[in-house]
């Protein structure tokens, strides 16, 4: 047989398998719009939990926002919190069950608007929890209204001509803010709009889980993400727009790393 004459059918065998959806995600079809970064980030979290072998050692806290039904998709124990209160709920769970890994998953409306106080105080107290912050610069779930994170000039359903500072104030960088608090141990900002960025995000979230076992303080990872529906773009357009507009204002990288 000739060298390259291997058919697709011959390749598709168990021994050649290199990537498949993790069993830590349920078989439920995620309700997210096509191309939404929530799905990608859920998958990364599930893969990390599988690779760390902590499926029965971890408890997640779901937010209010598009990811309100996250517990349907993750094959782990999860608790729903009232809008913005996930860090407070996670604080309670972690203090009662300190041997468990505890994380929150929150949108920017949840974490940076209604839940600002909970976020800042949990991080300032240095609760030994992990916070995953999905920043798509908008209230996706409720129809694309302006969020505190909406960029200057960015259009939303409540800023149809673009956010104007004189009327609506400045966008807030929550990740920079919490990096400056003494209670945080590891703070990073990543994105999931290219395969390379997805790989980096996975590494950052894995660290944010692993460091929790050290009991040194709050670990916080922002994921700059898209909202094709709220931004009124195709998924491809939204990722291009993210790279050109979100990333200059929300630059990627680790903002606080443990001292060596």
């Amino acid at each position: 047989m000739a060298e390259n004459a291997i058919t697709t059918k011959e390749l598709i065998k168990k021994e050649n398998l290199v990537y498949q959806k993790t069993k830590l995600l349920t078989d439920d079809v995620m309700h997210y719009c096509p191309g939404c970064g929530h799905g990608t980030t859920h998958r990364l979290i599930a893969e990390i939990i599988e690779e760390m072998g902590i499926q029965s050692e971890i408890i997640g806290v779901a937010p209010v926002g598009c990811s309100v039904l996250m517990y349907n998709y993750m094959n782990i124990d999860m608790q729903e919190a009232a809008h913005g209160r996930a860090p407070a709920v996670a604080t309670g769970i972690k203090r009662l069950l300190p041997e468990k890994y505890v994380f929150t998953y929150q949108g920017d409306g949840d974490l940076a608007a209604i839940g600002t106080a909970e976020t800042i105080h949990a991080c300032n107290r240095g609760e030994n929890i992990t916070i995953i912050f999905i920043n798509n610069g908008i209230y996706g779930m409720t129809g694309g209204q302006m969020a505190p994170t909406t960029l200057v000039g960015m259009k939303s359903s409540t800023t149809p001509y673009g956010r104007e500072v004189s009327q609506m104030g400045n966008p807030i960088k929550m990740t920079d803010l919490v990096a400056n608090l003494p209670g945080t141990y590891f703070v990073s900002r990543q994105s999931v709009h290219t395969p390379g960025n997805v790989r980096k995000t996975k590494k950052a979230i894995r660290k944010a889980f692993e460091y929790q076992a050290l009991n040194k303080g709050t670990c916080f990872v922002e994921v700059v993400s898209n909202c094709p529906s709220g931004w009124k773009m195709t998924p491809l357009e939204s990722n291009k727009w993210l790279a050109e507009n979100m990333l200059p204002f929300y630059p990627l990288g680790d903002m606080k790393v443990p001292e060596q």
């Binding site: 060298e3 390259n4 291997i6 390749l11 598709i12 065998k13 050649n16 398998l17 290199v18 990537y19 498949q20 959806k21 993790t22 995600l25 079809v29 995620m30 997210y32 096509p34 191309g35 939404c36 970064g37 929530h38 799905g39 990608t40 998958r43 999931v192 290219t194 395969p195 997805v198 790989r199």
Partner: peptide, 18 residues
């Protein structure tokens, strides 16, 4: 790369060295 970017995790990948 395709499987890693897929938000819905619906791509399975196989690979072989020939």
């Amino acid at each position: 790369n395709c499987a890693i970017i897929c938000p819905d995790g619906v791509i399975t990948v196989y690979r072989k060295k020939i």
